[in-house]
Design a protein around this nucleic acid. Sequence first.
DNA 1: TATGAATGAGCGTTCATTCAT
DNA 2: CATGAATGAACGCTCATTCAT
Lengths: 237, 237, 237, 237
Amino acid sequence: MARPPDKTARADLLAAALIEFDEHGVERATVEAITSRAGRSKGAFYLHFESKEAAFLALCESAFAGLGEFIGAVTPSSSLDWGLEALRAHWLETDLRAFEYVWQHRPILRLVLSVGMCGRFAYLVDAFATVARESIARWLEYGVERGFYRAELDIAITSMAIGGAYDRLARELVRLEKKPDLARWLSQFQATFVEGLAARERATKRGQSPTKPRGPAGEEPVAAKTRRASRHAALRG
Amino acid sequence: MARPPDKTARADLLAAALIEFDEHGVERATVEAITSRAGRSKGAFYLHFESKEAAFLALCESAFAGLGEFIGAVTPSSSLDWGLEALRAHWLETDLRAFEYVWQHRPILRLVLSVGMCGRFAYLVDAFATVARESIARWLEYGVERGFYRAELDIAITSMAIGGAYDRLARELVRLEKKPDLARWLSQFQATFVEGLAARERATKRGQSPTKPRGPAGEEPVAAKTRRASRHAALRG
Amino acid sequence: MARPPDKTARADLLAAALIEFDEHGVERATVEAITSRAGRSKGAFYLHFESKEAAFLALCESAFAGLGEFIGAVTPSSSLDWGLEALRAHWLETDLRAFEYVWQHRPILRLVLSVGMCGRFAYLVDAFATVARESIARWLEYGVERGFYRAELDIAITSMAIGGAYDRLARELVRLEKKPDLARWLSQFQATFVEGLAARERATKRGQSPTKPRGPAGEEPVAAKTRRASRHAALRG
Amino acid sequence: MARPPDKTARADLLAAALIEFDEHGVERATVEAITSRAGRSKGAFYLHFESKEAAFLALCESAFAGLGEFIGAVTPSSSLDWGLEALRAHWLETDLRAFEYVWQHRPILRLVLSVGMCGRFAYLVDAFATVARESIARWLEYGVERGFYRAELDIAITSMAIGGAYDRLARELVRLEKKPDLARWLSQFQATFVEGLAARERATKRGQSPTKPRGPAGEEPVAAKTRRASRHAALRG
DNA sequence: TATGAATGAGCGTTCATTCAT
DNA sequence: CATGAATGAACGCTCATTCAT
């Protein structure tokens, strides 16, 4: 319990554990390999961590601790009075900061997103996904309330879709070796969700390559067409 | 003349393995537990499967074999000449059939989607996700070529977003105990992606760079309407 | 117990067992491999043999049964009245027939001599070696009694030496792929033991290559020189 | 600072392994039995040896390492200029030292000579036997070149005979419980090989082809003298 | 009789954790 | 505190043998 004097030991061990967990999974990674990679003794490992899994949870904690800051940063409330532009700007800005963080911490997040997905650790990512989705849902509600978003949106389902999309984005990012143009990725995401896929009445003007668009051009709103009853009903069938 | 093979043995063992793998993960599930759950001998297990992992892969195969049918079903080609409505109808129909299948096979798919996410089996889900995303990409291209979808779409990123959303949807579905209104879920998904979130009454302001939003501008607030307690808890059975 | 009707089955199984035992040893050879090689069922195996080891013992039996004939063929007794020439001729003739047999049955004898050497089957080869050695000893006694052999021979030790030499010869023979000139081998053996290594007073006459002699030429006896006390004492120190 | 390695552990385990291997063979000996006999944990076994077979090989190595010294000790060369007496004295001396060593290390050599004869370890004893035989061959050549040995000796066959005889001797020795008079054994061996069996009073008849003996010729019988009951039983303890 | 599916005891090996030094 | 040798429970897999058909 007493804080060990060698503060670098814990960090060394966590760094080694990160690599081993990532390469072999928590289950197959051996304490032996971790400690030998860290240049520490097995005794030191158990001096700093209750068990192998405790070390993994410590890694998870640090991963989520950082991520959580971005998500809970600003919560929409009735007192908040942003316009559409501010909403989109905030969205993009928040995303950018969050995914910049993801990029910076991709080693640990790759671990958490893959290993943490299965087995008895699933709850960790689940919990985070739920938090993220609830945050999305709150912002969607905010947008709907303000009239920025379609009134008939099913918040629960839409937040699931958006959450899933961002989740996938994070999983891809975390595996890349070269940093992509995050701003483009995220603005495309935003465009996809806000504008949707549908071409508006006025087609895009120039001969843009659809596979390599330079970004959104002005569009005009189109009246929603497909109206289906009971759009806001409960999710259960 | 020989004792006829017990045709239910393999199925029994797979069913038991499914449960054990799901509950403990492939790594921690024991052959002992599987066989005792199946009411078979350990020898019987190795009579039907090369190894514990082979049994898992057999489960995966059966899961993906069924899923693959839906994805490769219709591939858009230049000879195809569907209108927007046909496109959307086909989209919805395909999704419905696919997710109906997911629902029917949710036990095995829950296993594959969770356990198959990590460790050395990740390639299985990865490969499937890639196939799915490529299929999405082809349909997006088709839509863009026909002028149904925005020309400036970044197919790669958008297909990632859509693929991620559907992935999440499958993961949620697979955990439910009571069947949800799949048609609603899927039409909401389609609406989200095709129409986007934006209320059409209000056009997006022109000339903004989505990659560099300038920040909040004043818009009128809308009274919060839809308040749902524990939105996401409702998703679980 | 009832003699199985398919007489070829037993032979097929034994032949397959011989190969498998030889290739992998009795311990590591599997009944599965034996039966599959024999094109028979596992049931058939246990119909013909009590156990895997019983099959090995059956092989050993057949191997030794044939060999035993040569060894026990003629036992020297006081009624026997052979001269030196007859003795040597009989020796050589017997050896030739025995090792011809060894050559013909080298597959099974290779198995018995190698696998049968170790573990719990050692007693088989041991027993045979003892029998062979006792036979050698009897002939040595006969020769000593007749005055053909040195009176001070320690029969026990000499029979050990001769038995070991023949044992080695059999082990070598059994591994060869091309049949060697057995007659030469055996006459060399006989020459080695009867004449010994020592050059006699008269050196060999012609320019024979000592490494490739064409066979023994006439030699003259040399009086034994090294006399050591207690040559006939008991073997124990 | 760490717990100092128990230096006796490896030796204890090897000693226990030696016994278990000897009693049951490498295949059937269980690590469990070895460790329990050694009063160590199973983990300790794998701390010192890669595998059960590695432990056996370690035993073999130690056995052969010691033996090798005797065999390679003096190699005959053209610069060597020994007389017959020196040759025989060196032979006897070398044998005596080697078999003294065999006696001292009989437990491990018994194991290696029996278990090491069969299965996949045969190459160990084979290799040693080959080395020994080549050493014998070199000395034979030396003797022939000096004119001490018969010029017509077939070195290859004779070295096989001598090697086999010594091999058998070692195998017998290794099984005894009470130390025999090694000097006697070995001088008998030497006498057998150098002098041969033949009584020198009677010359061998001339001109007989040893490869095709013509059969018995009349010689005078000699009354049987030395009758020993159970000659070979005396060899065992 | 013949078959080969089924059985289950048994073994080698691993590795998280402990603890003597 | 630090070390790393020691521990031993646990597990995947094998295969000789049995026996239902």
